[in-house]
Simulated assay, not measured.
Amino acid sequence: MTDVIVGLDAGGTKLGVRVVSLDGSRIADVSLPAEDWSASPAGDAARWLIARIERVVASGDRVVAVGVGAQGCDTVEHCHELAHELTALGYSAVVVNDAALLVPAAGLQAGIGVIAGTGSIAVGQDETGRPFSPAAGAG
């Protein structure tokens, strides 16, 4: 049995799934269809994600942590709710909006990620990992 970490990028058309061992060795890196993905309600979304995790993770391997970037998780509260649902089903998880994956994917510690497509969103974090807050009076 191998302990693994799973990373998920849940978008409107595809779900990216990466599985790595604790030493960082890549075990799987696949793309699955996600036309039926919805982040709400959180319980249904958690079960949807788990069904896909179980398709990719080898039988007998143990998932010790899950990181999720999810289209449709547009508030901190919603991200926490989905993480809670995943944890309640046995998968310790951290959930962020999928746009939050852009800055670290570019190898940066701080920045603003913008997705402009069928849906649009912008998120950012400073070098300490704190989300940027809008300036007072901005709107």
Score class of each variant (00 low, 15 high):
S31Q: 11
S31T: 10
S31H: 07
L32S: 03
L32Y: 02
L32C: 01
P33K: 08
P33A: 09
P33E: 11
A34Y: 05
E35L: 11
E35A: 13
D36A: 11
D36C: 02
W37R: 05
A39Y: 01
P41Y: 08
A42T: 09
G43A: 12
G43L: 02
G43F: 00
D44C: 00
D44A: 14
D44E: 14
A45K: 02
A45P: 06
A45C: 06
A46I: 02
W48T: 05
W48S: 06
R52W: 05
I53N: 00
I53C: 04
E54L: 07
R55S: 10
V56Y: 06
V56T: 14
V57H: 06
V57N: 00
V57G: 04
A58E: 15
A58F: 00
A58T: 13
A58Q: 12
A58V: 08
S59G: 12
G60R: 09
G60A: 06
G60P: 03
G60D: 08
D61A: 15
R62Q: 13
R62G: 01
V64Q: 08
V64I: 15
A65G: 10
A65N: 01
V66A: 07
G67L: 05
V68R: 08
G69N: 05
A70H: 00
A70D: 03
A70T: 00
Q71A: 15
Q71Y: 14
C73W: 05
C73I: 05
C73Q: 09
D74C: 02
D74T: 13
D74S: 13
T75F: 01
T75V: 09
V76Q: 14
E77P: 02
H78S: 14
H78C: 01
H78W: 04
C79P: 02
C79F: 02
E81S: 10
E81V: 11
E81P: 00
L82F: 07
A83R: 08
E85Y: 05
A88R: 15
A88N: 15
L89E: 15
G90Y: 12
G90R: 14
Y91R: 14
S92P: 13
S92T: 10
V94N: 04
V94Y: 04
V95L: 10
V95I: 10
V95P: 06
V95E: 09
V96T: 11
N97M: 06
N97G: 05
D98M: 12
A100N: 13
A100Y: 11
A100K: 09
L102K: 03
L102W: 02
L102C: 03
V103P: 01
V103M: 12
P104F: 13
P104Y: 13
P104H: 12
A105H: 03
A105L: 14
A105E: 09
A106Q: 12
A106C: 12
G107E: 12
G107F: 07
L108E: 14
I112R: 05
I112D: 04
I112K: 03
I112G: 02
G113Y: 04
G113I: 06
V114F: 07
V114G: 06
V114I: 15
V114Y: 05
V114E: 05
I115W: 00
A116N: 06
A116K: 03
T118S: 13
T118L: 04
T118V: 09
T118G: 12
G119L: 03
G119D: 03
S120V: 14
S120W: 10
S120N: 15
S120F: 09
I121A: 07
I121N: 03
A122H: 02
A122T: 11
E127S: 10
T128D: 12
T128F: 10
